[in-house]
Nucleic acid binder design. Structure first.
Lengths: 201, 201, 201, 201
DNA sequence: TATGAATGAGCATTCATTCAT
DNA sequence: GATGAATGAATGCTCATTCAT
């Protein structure tokens, strides 16, 4: 009961922070803003989180948990490698576009401008890229993939998706181009370039 | 003479701001910091620039001028489309990696978090993507390009390069992967997937 | 049993507070710091002590008990007055140097900056100076002491020792001077100036 | 004119700080308190002083200047060594009692609890003790002083005076004893014990 | 009884911007 | 024209103490 309520408040702080993060970005997010929105005292924030960094870190961790969970849930080993990669790509882009606040703190923060994210948590953060790498490695072993270096390819795919997400976030995609069309085209090209497919299709 | 000196100070302010931008990022950049480095009064800054935003805008504009100039200088219409695209890609990535301070304010700022960048200046900003689009359109007209929509493809190429630059800036590329190797691989894939090349090799 | 455990916790709070006092000083000592170190709840502190001041007062009282006990233990009425005074001086300085945390709250706190130390406890506090005065009075009655006013002299001796302790605490003694040498010289001069000793030596 | 006014404000801040220091002590002195008393904005304080420490440092420096000036002004090389030492002692004690706020920050601050006082300023701080040492050295050379080590003796005299000042500040001198009587007695003993004087007087 | 969640004023400091001189 | 003094709200954070549970 007590701990339930405690969890509730912690949750509310995290949720409010997340919401504010979308609107203002991490650098214009202030503890006072959070208290105003949550309707609590400054001290309360500091009771639940050691400091602002710890609050952000908690959100980063949560973000990685959600992303990796979504990635793992969406992967189906019974499908073709093409389909698996396509699905993983869609899941990743979906996450990035639907959760700009998570995405921004997870993947857009220069390390030197933020208190060091605890090293041990970085492992979980890496998992998100490894999901891609794992499938590519498997495909590579089976001889299905065009390229030789699965880990490098995972980074390239990631970069491509990351770039799309980033440009959408900053609203730089020309309005003549529909986001979903662009995303689908990108993922199709990723798949096509990695696996021997009838290109004439 | 007078106006020459005037330009000098304006120039110095811009240069100093740019340098400070790399070290501190836009949100931790302060007018006081700039005056300290330039060795001028606060008023001076406000004489040359309406406010902090205007100063950043001037830098953004300058950034786009430099980027477009570099792109246009590097394009050689006599080369094959493959080579022209490859060159443009390299130029773009080079610019992004060598000028993180420009790149960040040009392509990473959420529009809602900044005073509106003047509409008329946005045209020049667009030019940077049009350079890619122009070459692709030409290739498309000549029937050389695999894909049908040059403008969309320009955006995809841009996204890919933008993603790489972004991940390098935030130091997220695994240290087992060399940046240049990754960039070269990316550009090769871009070229390969856009133009009919012996894929069976 | 229960009361035994109770005493244990009270004890532990006092000991921890004392230890923290050396490191942080009274103004940077916080209740939270104490609970963290003791491993108890905030409420616990307030169960045993009315407030922070009361906790400090308890420590002050304890300090005076220890100092007076040490003074009385070290006094040996069988010795000469010179030796008795010398011994008392050494005991006092020893206490001050070995227990900076006690000494500071006992003798360095401006009364107007602290909740009033309970009047009845002040009596015990006075005892520490009376120990000196008692011996001097006795010496005076016996006609052994040079000066006429034992109580005043007790204050002067106290001042001298207090000054040494204070300067050592703030690390102001020149490093060419060894503390012990200085202390011994001081006490020798105190004794020499109070009792007829061959000054011509 | 401008710089005159500037000096005025700086002065006022220093004076107000000094006054507040007496009442509240350094640890309970806050920038806000100062602004309230000066009737200015927070920013003003920070315009004239880099930070709180710098403000205190300025006061410490000022204190040492005043003390040393007073010491040097009061020393008259034409007097006997006894009189010179007596005068210096009186000057020192006077300064300490009349300027508790200066005295406290000059001689009662534990070095570890305060931002490092600039090393080069410490030299001036040392001068205050050297004034005593200089006279004692001269007396020693002339064979007038009883003791062998002028520098050590200077420290002992200093300790004695420092102890008196400290106990007066914390109001620990028994009210049956008049401060001035005590101070005079102390200084007389200092002089008597250092120089061959008819002790029977 | 004992806990620990909650308060909210307080802290030192920074900052973009204004405007009297 | 140019300066730099001044503003004052805002920042992250701490803390003694209270009190519902």
């Amino acid at each position: 009961m007590v701990s339930e309520k405690k969890q509730d408040i912690r949750r509310k702080i995290l949720d409010v922070t997340r919401a504010l993060l979308v609107q203002h970005g991490i650098t214009h997010l202030s503890i006072r803003m959070i208290t105003r929105e949550v309707g609590c005292s400054v001290g309360k924030i500091y009771f639940y989180f050691e400091n602002k960094d710890a609050l952000i870190h908690a959100l980063i961790e949560e973000g990685f948990e959600k992303l990796v969970a979504a990635q793992e849930a969406s992967d189906n080993p019974d499908l073709t490698f093409q389909d698996r990669i396509a699905t993983l790509c869609h899941t990743y882009v979906d996450f990035g576009l639907r959760n700009p606040e998570y995405y921004e703190i997870m993947f857009m923060l220069k390390p030197e401008r933020m208190a060091r994210y605890p090293a041990e948590k970085y492992r979980k953060a890496r998992r998100s890229i490894e999901v891609f790498a794992d499938v590519l490695r498997e495909a590579h072993e089976k001889g299905t993939m065009v390229f030789e270096e699965p880990f490098l390819q995972a980074h390239l795919i990631w970069s491509f998706l990351h770039g799309i997400i980033g440009l959408v976030h900053v609203k730089r995609i020309d309005r003549k181009i529909e986001h979903q069309v662009m995303i689908d085209a990108a993922i199709r090209q990723i798949v096509d370039s990695h696996f021997e497919i009838a290109r004439t299709v």
